[in-house]
């Protein structure tokens, strides 16, 4: 992990750290005010150490947590627990750790709630489509079993949100109230404020030809879309789509406009390639991953339905959202 530390204003310290994990770069910026924190701690903490002294340790602990989750949830690592399940669960029930069992169970509940669009069996062998219906779990013994040899689990559409959830808890425990965490530009957690403003301003590029109704850019957007051009692209004009995030997360699917990444549709197993990325803002980062994937894939009618859920106006996911 590398990091830079900056002091600014009256007793403010900011740390920016970055490292590679989960096939991408993780960026963590957090800042604190020692004067403010000293006053708050004066009654219950005898320590004279400034809060800022611990910032590098905090980001190092976050890195460890990210690596820990990656170790068991990376399907490309043959030694991971997920790989062990993928290899063995058709032959026999596989006992799963408490954490991974809870994670898998949660993911499977999202499949019916998203009308089947979010599906962790999407990368099953031979394009097998009924993966999610060919899994049995035993909560008492914490085992999982596949009923078809082609079933494979893939958490890559979910795990970054799961990690962001853990990071948010860690930051809260450490008393860090201002932070921005970015995982590969597709999963962003914004806590508290930028050092010089309320919330954090984020800009994502979208093709100029994009139908803006496909973007979840309300209600807390700021400014206007601005014409710009992405370097290294084929020359199509791009605009930026701006978000103001305050204690919330932004998850984006399909946000590689220069090289659009097709997302597999679970019902057809065909690659979906929308003209524009889809972003979901949620308070829970893991749920944001689920929704951005589902919305990116959704047919028009389903899209409107799911969008309403995201906007908190109805649907079975509303209870999860709140």
């Amino acid at each position: 992990m590398e990091y830079v530390q900056k002091s600014f204003g009256q007793g403010n310290t900011l740390v920016y750290a970055w490292f590679a994990a989960m096939h991408t770069r993780v960026d963590i910026a957090l800042w604190t005010n020692d004067n403010h924190n000293k006053q708050e701690r004066s009654n219950d903490s005898p320590s004279d150490l400034s809060h800022s002294v611990f910032l590098p340790t905090i980001v190092a602990n976050i890195q460890q947590e990210v690596k820990r989750v990656e170790t068991f949830a990376n399907r490309f690592d043959p030694d991971s627990e997920l790989s062990r399940i993928n290899r063995m669960a058709f032959e026999q029930p596989v006992t799963v750790s408490e954490e991974l069992f809870a994670l898998l169970t949660e993911c499977m509940t999202y499949t019916p709630l998203t009308l089947g669009y979010f599906d962790i069996t999407i990368n099953s062998f031979n394009g097998f489509k009924q993966g999610i219906h060919n899994i049995t779990t035993d909560p008492l013994n914490r085992t999982i079993r596949f009923l078809h040899p082609d079933v494979q689990l893939d958490l890559s559409g979910y795990i970054k949100g799961y990690v962001l959830r853990a990071i948010r808890n860690m930051l809260e425990q450490e008393g860090i109230s201002n932070a921005l965490v970015n995982m590969g530009n597709s999963s962003i957690l914004a806590l508290g404020n930028h050092p010089h403003g309320e919330g954090w301003k984020i800009s994502l590029p979208v093709p100029a030809s994009t139908d803006k109704t496909t973007l979840l850019n309300t209600p807390a957007s700021f400014g206007e879309t601005k014409a710009s051009k992405e370097p290294g692209t084929s020359g199509e004009a791009y605009e930026t789509n701006d978000f103001l995030l305050l204690n919330e997360c932004l998850s984006t699917s399909g946000n590689r406009p220069d090289r659009p990444w097709p997302v597999l549709n679970p019902s057809t197993h065909e690659a979906t390639q929308r003209s524009a990325p889809v972003s979901a803002r949620t308070t829970d980062p893991a749920l944001g991953e689920v929704l951005s994937t589902a919305l990116y894939l959704a047919e028009e009618e389903d899209y409107l339905y799911l969008n309403q859920i995201v906007m908190g106006t109805g649907g079975p996911l509303k209870s999860v959202l709140t």
Binding site: T24, E230, T240
Partner: peptide, 12 residues
């Protein structure tokens, strides 16, 4: 504002 260009994530 912080411009985040396309994802650096390589998912598959």
């Amino acid at each position: 504002s912080m411009p985040f260009a396309g994802t650096s994530w390589v998912p598959e």
